[in-house]
Design a protein around this nucleic acid. Structure first.
Lengths: 142, 142
DNA sequence: TTGTAAACAAGAATAATTATCAACTAAGAA
DNA sequence: TTCTTAGTTGATAATTATTCTTGTTTACAA
């Protein structure tokens, strides 16, 4: 995966990448650092930032701006939206083809002058009711 | 407006509020500070932050997280979405009732377990083609 | 007009992120 | 396998965004 994107394969990138791509969370740089540190005490914070940054530049991850004042990193490359919990600041991925097409089709009917649309993302705000239970989306129409 | 929200009316709040509510931009705290400073050299950065924060708490403005690493403040209280220019980092308001209803109706048909939706916002990414011209949205269907 | 809680200015403190730079290492060439 | 080199890393300094502290001032209710 790294090679495909012309990135040198280093231990640091493997460790950080593994965490980022396996758990599709939306960690801050700090989160990543804390998580990998126990097994890799020599990796520095600067490396975490640089590594995350190189993933973003390579298109392997995306930055997500938050109102908490820190940047989160999203390694889910599939087309998806976000559920944002206003209480816990947690971001949950939300994939729904139907919703995506609905909005995409509508946007195409609009004529936005002087702006070239590349993509879009829906942020659905609200709150997780029971923190230890998962959030599951069911579609009631077929 | 300030009184309605139980905020003491001070010169600083009037000046900052005027800038924020009249130009529906999405300034950073820094932007606000630079803008008002010429005519109000004694207002401090801390006051700008505190004032913006009190507007947010009073529901007069909203924080917008960005990938630039700074918080922007949005004083447009109407239901609206954002066009986000990936080149200039500028955020442009985008209001479209039809789009909003489309998504709102669809979300209501979904059964999202363990998450209570309060609202949503669509971020439309792309780029402004000619920086000095305005972005205008036209609807080609009726 | 006055008392008081709230708001302010200035600058120190903290937190997040980026820059610097010497030492190290991946990976292609010999 | 060894050499070479450009890219990467770790330590830490620097920068940037934001919040905190403190003494002073101000809005506004009584």
């Amino acid at each position: 995966m790294l090679r495909e994107h012309d990135l040198k394969v280093t231990h640091q990138r493997l460790v950080i990448g593994q965490y980022l791509f396996e758990n599709k969370k939306h960690p801050t740089a700090e989160d990543v650092y804390e998580r990998i540190r126990p097994n890799n005490p020599s990796i520095s914070m600067a490396t975490v930032y640089k590594t995350l940054d190189c993933f973003v530049k390579a298109g392997l991850a995306q930055k997500v701006g938050t109102t908490e004042g820190k940047t989160r990193y999203d390694a889910n490359l599939d087309r998806h939206d976000h559920l944002y919990c206003e209480e816990s600041n947690q971001i949950i991925d939300f994939s729904n083809e139907q919703l995506h097409h609905l909005v995409d089709d509508y946007l195409r009917t609009l004529n936005i002058q002087n702006f070239e649309v590349s993509d879009f993302q829906i942020q659905i705000n609200g709150k997780v009711l029971e923190k230890n239970k998962p959030v599951i989306v069911k579609n009631s129409i077929k």
